[in-house]
Write a protein that binds this DNA or RNA. Sequence first.
DNA 1: GAGACGTGGGT
DNA 2: TACCCAAGTCT
Length: 383
Amino acid sequence: MSRRASSRSYLDRLTPALRETFHGLIDWYRRHARDLPWRRTRDPYRIWVAEVMLQQTRVDQAGPYYERFLRAFPTVEALAAASLDDVLRCWEGLGYYARARNLHRAARQLVAEHGGRLPTTYEALRRLPGVGPYTAAAVASIAFGEPRAVLDGNVIRVLTRVLAVADDARASATRRALQEVADALISDEEPGTFNQALMELGATVCTPVQPRCNDCPLREVCRARAMGDPTAFPVQTPRASVPHYEVALGLLFNEEGAVLIQRRPEDGLLGGLWEFPGGKREPGESLEAACARELHEELGVRVAVGPCLATVRHAYTHFRVTLYAFPCTLLEGVPRSRAGLPLRWVPLNELDHYAFPRANRRLIELLKQRRLQPDLFGQNPVR
DNA sequence: GAGACGTGGGT
DNA sequence: TACCCAAGTCT
């Protein structure tokens, strides 16, 4: 079963009949393609934005963001001229915020060095921050007609099923061999359409669960279907379970009723987004103590911690958190970020002007609902 | 190469 | 509830 990684290949499974059937995907696509916003444009910038938004993101979720983002930043120049905060605010809720930071950085790079135009080749696109093999192939083929095969989750699923690939689909040797197959199949006349056809098939017919094999144009040549259980492919190793953290957040109000927020470092998790100060509870520590300790460590102040006002649970990719929000009263000191992060006092009705992580935003919504019960805030009036 | 990096929907 | 995962990229 296992071969030397350097020699792994599935090209010998590409029979003439199978190649012919794959070629028919372009016609299938013309009849079944969904009408999606980014399929109505030839503008390379718009196609680029769409492909970045679609990384690890469902079409239904990206759709509204795509429209809104391009209204706000209709051109490379407009995106380059915007502040990162404005870009992140537009991206809030879409996740993987490095995509927005890289898009912004790449736009500035293009304006500074490339006349604000997108590169027209795979190799040149690949050099832009946030543009990996998938995005470079997608933009090069769809916007510029370059025959470069995309290999995304959809294509991997379709190919491993049709060819009954029993190797771990996440292994790099398998990826390379599948890329080789996709390169061998792609249409030289309509590479962009072929790429989208293969992805569309994976997204709408050859789905992870309950694939619609009876509607599949590849059903006659699909080895997985012949074997009886298409969902046995792609073969992947199960993920490890994720840790769960408890995080105490401090709601520190000033005399005007504004609350203190701080901006996260621009690299790493949720980079560049704003949040309430706080941090993880340590073993044997109460949540209230964790809140006071974190505010002391981060802001150099001593606070009295009131009763918990709200909790939010949230699942990230590789861990899980529960947020606990505590109203805090300043006892000693003036808040200053020890890490040199930007701090700001913000009236509750202006929190919408800042990009927050989803879990923080849900917390804000809960607190707004309780504005009519000022006693909940104890000695910290909301108004 | 393995792990970091978000979020929402489906089962 | 808990787990899976979706048009990936970076380090």
